[in-house]
Design a protein around this nucleic acid. Structure first.
Length: 249
DNA sequence: TAGGCCATCTGGTCCT
DNA sequence: AGGACCAGATGGCCTA
């Protein structure tokens, strides 16, 4: 049995402590996310107040003229009403404008970064929501097992592949025989003991040879796909299917 | 304690 | 220009 098989079996039969810990971690993560969101909101509001002064700073910067003059030197505050009379006072005002524009650039960059972080966070949350939706439509065994992200994607790929193969073989069967009770005996054969010449083994071997072959698969009898449309897809069959197909990933 | 998984931040790139 | 997307870095949490 491959390492992937071991991992898969361990995944399919976790102890209950792991599940509860996962739930606890999710809750903690959610709390952390909310805290971060609120802190970002606070910082955003602060940044908004900053950006209100951005225009003022820009205007003052434009009024101050060329930004090529040196900055960083302490400057005495000059009243807004007062026009700098001497060239030295004008230079001081230019220095102050340059300082404020540098600070403004920093604040604007920080504001953009904060907004980008928020968008990225929401984007990842949407991605995780989509993964959760995918987990919900996938058969789970046992029910409380939460697949990781990569396992969810691989499992979905394999599950779709297995269902497609099932439909294809069912169509072939129906074309060969009118007897509906012969629906996919090959899958039952997989659950028991696959013989090299059977149909089940043929589509399993095609799985191992195909480039898009699944590495593992499972099913839950309670899931709609398994219990209603594809009731013949028993969990045991798919476990056996997984055990016989070498891991690709 | 090492390793796995995850959330988040961050800078770069592409697209509209 | 701003948003979406991506990949690397980082740190926290959990398990064996």
């Amino acid at each position: 049995m491959s390492l992937l098989s071991h991992k898969f079996m361990a995944l399919m039969f976790p102890d209950t402590a792991k599940v509860s810990n996962n739930n606890t971690r999710s809750l903690k993560t959610t709390c952390t996310t909310m805290e971060t969101l609120y802190s970002d909101l606070d910082s955003s509001s602060c940044d908004l107040s900053y950006s209100q002064t951005d225009d003022e700073d820009s205007r003052s910067s434009i009024q101050a003229g060329s930004p090529s003059s040196s900055f960083g030197q302490p400057s005495s505050p000059i009243s807004n009403n007062q026009e700098p009379s001497s060239p030295e006072q004008q230079q001081k005002k230019r220095r102050r404008g340059r300082m404020r524009s540098e600070a403004t650039v920093h604040v604007v960059k920080k504001n953009r970064r904060t907004k980008a972080n928020d968008r990225e966070r929401n984007r990842m949350h949407n991605l995780n929501d989509a993964l959760d939706t995918l987990r919900n439509v996938l058969p789970a065994f046992p029910d409380d097992t939460k697949l990781t992200k990569i396992e969810t994607l691989r499992f979905a790929h394999n599950y779709i592949w297995a269902l497609s193969e099932t439909i294809r073989i069912a169509d072939q069967r129906q074309n060969k025989s009118q007897d509906a009770s012969l629906l996919l005996p090959g899958l039952v054969c997989v659950a028991d003991s696959p013989s090299p010449g059977s149909d089940a083994c043929s589509w399993m071997s095609s799985a191992s040879s195909s480039s898009s072959s699944p590495s593992y698969c499972t099913s839950n009898p309670s899931s709609p796909a398994a219990s209603e449309d594809y009731g013949f897809l028993q969990a045991e069959s798919l476990y056996s299917f997984h055990n016989f197909v070498p891991g690709v990933y």
